[in-house]
Every structure is written in C-alpha cells, then in structure tokens.
C-alpha cells in the first residue's frame, strides 16, 4: 500500500489513469482514438469484476481500513442536515473518538452517534484513531438517554479498531462503561439502528452496538477480536493476520448467515471510498426504511423484540 490505494487495487487504478490520460491526450491533440478508449474501458470493467467480486476476508479488512474510506463524520455530513454536535459525558471529559448529536434525517430529528477515526495524521491523533475511552461510552449513553427522553430514534455508526487499552481507560472503568451500555441499550425505548461502516472490533464496537437493526456495509468487518490480535495470541505471529481473518469469519455474509446482522448494505463497485455520496445515499435509504418499519411497533414490542434478538444468539449442542 502506498497510502492512497491498496496493492490489489493497483491494476484497476493504473488502468483508470491510463484511460484518463488517453482521453486527455485525445482532447488536447484532437486525435480520434475513441475505439481504443472504448476497448480499454471494456477491459477495465472486466478487471474490476475480477478484482472486486472475489475479495478474501483479509482484503475486505483492508478495504474497511482504506485510507480513503468514508468515516462517520462523512456519513453524518452526507446523510443528515442541521447537525448539532453535543459534547461530553458530564463527568470527566469529551471523548473525541466518538461524535454525537442531534440531526435531521430526511427532515426528521434523530440522535446520531459515530466513532470517528480521523483522516490525516493530525486528525487521527485528535480522534485517538477511533479508540474510545470510558468517557466516550458514557457520552454515547448520555446522548441515547437524552434521545429516549424526547422520543427520537438513534442512529449508530460503528468504526473502531477497538476500545483504547491504556492506563487512564482502566482507571476510569473501561469494562464498567461498556457493560453498562450493553445493559442500558437493551432497554432504551426508542428505535436504535446500528450500522457497521468500517471496523467493528470487539467490545469496543459492541459497547455502542446493541439495537433493533444491525446493518453492515459490504466491506466492513465485525469480530470478537481483530485479526492481528487473534494472530498474535493464537498463532503467536502477527504476520498470520490474513489466516486469522479467514478463520474468524468476520465478513458480512457470514454474520448475516448466523443471524448477528440483519442486512448487508451494498457498496459502490470497488468500495465505499469510490463514491462517498452514493454510499451515503444507499445507507440513508436503508436507515429510513428500517425506521419506518420500527415505528409501527409499540415500545413494549420494540424492547421485547430487541431482547429476543440477542437472547437467541449463540450456537451450542444440547445433549439429551
């Protein structure tokens, strides 16, 4: 990877550049090479299909971490209007790794909360790479309870390499903060829609991940542990991360199959980073559709269904 695109994207991107160069050349010099360009565009289509229709779990992990991938703030900006960001947990600090506030989704007020990784180095440091501290989980819960108090639906965007493992995080009760969110989110009486838009690493993701609908972008991942963490513990070798990604079955199709998520949100060909606006529109439509469905339920039904959803999760053998 050179910082702008992934190794397996290289042939596609090089061909795209070549086509663009030829078009520029044709225009500049006023020469007729449209047939050559057309042929190359055909080749490009085939190449794209070859590269993107058979991605390995590890390649999807890389796409989920793509340096150009849209992050939570991009979705908030592209999907909603009149966003008012609200800060702080009212106890310790404002965690910049998670952004939240009120906004309008198709005119309708909602609370939207997302883990934000930041794009350039400065922002990444400011956002702590999307790794939350306890005060982040507490801020998120505060906003969710506020949302419930005024009967507004909650939209969650998940994109984190994990909860932050540090001294302060432990001192301030990382485990307690996550546990409390799991407990409280199970009984917040407004619709909650969870969207895994990038990385969904472990308790750090689940800590804001309990809801009525769980959507996952096609090239995102969600797992009990990151491939690197798994590789270093079980294989004692971080270079085995691709194998760990394979073994963990952390991609959307598998999670749909075992009932952990409700829907896979398609991405534009090549991934979300190839077309921010289109991706945001696709996601927004799915969220609006789900909200409409959930609004038909009474509060009791909503909570009953939410608990049932998680109660059923698990696979075991019951010997007679």
């Amino acid at each position: 990877m050179n910082g702008q695109f992934l190794d397996f994207e290289r042939p596609v991107i090089e061909l795209e550049r070549k086509i663009k160069d030829m078009k520029d050349f044709a225009k500049d010099k006023n020469v007729e090479i449209s047939r050559e360009i057309e042929a190359l565009e055909e080749t490009l289509k085939k190449l794209q299909k070859d590269v993107y229709s058979n991605l390995s779990p590890w390649q999807r992990v890389q796409l989920a971490r793509h340096p150009q991938r849209p992050h939570s703030l991009d979705y908030i900006n592209l999907m909603t209007t009149d966003f008012v960001e609200l800060h702080g947990d009212r106890a310790f600090a404002d965690d910049k790794a998670v952004v939240g506030g009120f906004a309008k989704l198709d005119g309708e007020p909602v609370v939207i909360i997302g883990q934000e990784k930041g794009k350039d180095t400065k922002q990444k440091l400011f956002r702590n790479f999307g790794m939350m501290h306890p005060e982040g989980y507490r801020k998120a819960l505060r906003l969710m309870l506020l949302s419930a108090k005024f009967d507004k639906a909650i939209i969650i965007l998940i994109d984190t390499p994990g909860a932050y493992p540090g001294i302060g995080a432990e001192e301030r009760g990382q485990a307690e903060a996550i546990a409390k969110n799991l407990k409280e989110m199970s009984r917040i009486p407004v619709p909650i829609i969870i969207n895994i838009v990038g990385e969904g690493a472990s308790g750090g993701a689940l800590g804001i991940g309990v809801g009525d609908k769980i959507f996952m972008l096609e090239n995102s991942w969600y797992s009990v542990i990151s491939p690197e963490g798994c590789a270093s513990i079980l294989w004692r070798d971080v270079s085995k991360s691709p194998q760990a990604a394979e073994a963990l079955k952390l991609t959307a199709p598998h999670l749909l199959e075992i009932g952990v998520i409700d829907k896979i949100i398609p991405e534009p060909l090549g991934g979300a980073h190839r077309d921010y606006l289109k991706q945001a529109q696709i996601l927004k439509e799915e969220i609006l559709f789900a909200l409409k469905e959930l609004k038909g339920l009474s509060k009791e039904q909503l909570l009953e269904k939410r608990i049932e959803k998680f109660r059923k999760m698990g696979q075991f053998i019951e010997e007679i």
């Binding site: 546990a179 799991l182 407990k183 199970s186 009984r187 472990s202 308790g203 689940l206 991940g209 309990v210 969600y222 797992s223 009990v224 963990l248 079955k249 952390l250 999670l255 075992i258 952990v260 939410r306 608990i307 998680f310 109660r311 999760m313 698990g314 696979q315």
Partner: peptide, 12 residues
C-alpha cells in the same frame, strides 16, 4: 462473533 454477542445477551 457469537462469543462477543454473549456479552450483549447476558447484559440484556
């Protein structure tokens, strides 16, 4: 992931 989901299940 099913192990992770046991956290949500028990907490709920």
């Amino acid at each position: 992931i099913l192990s992770l989901m046991q956290m949500a299940k028990t907490s709920a």
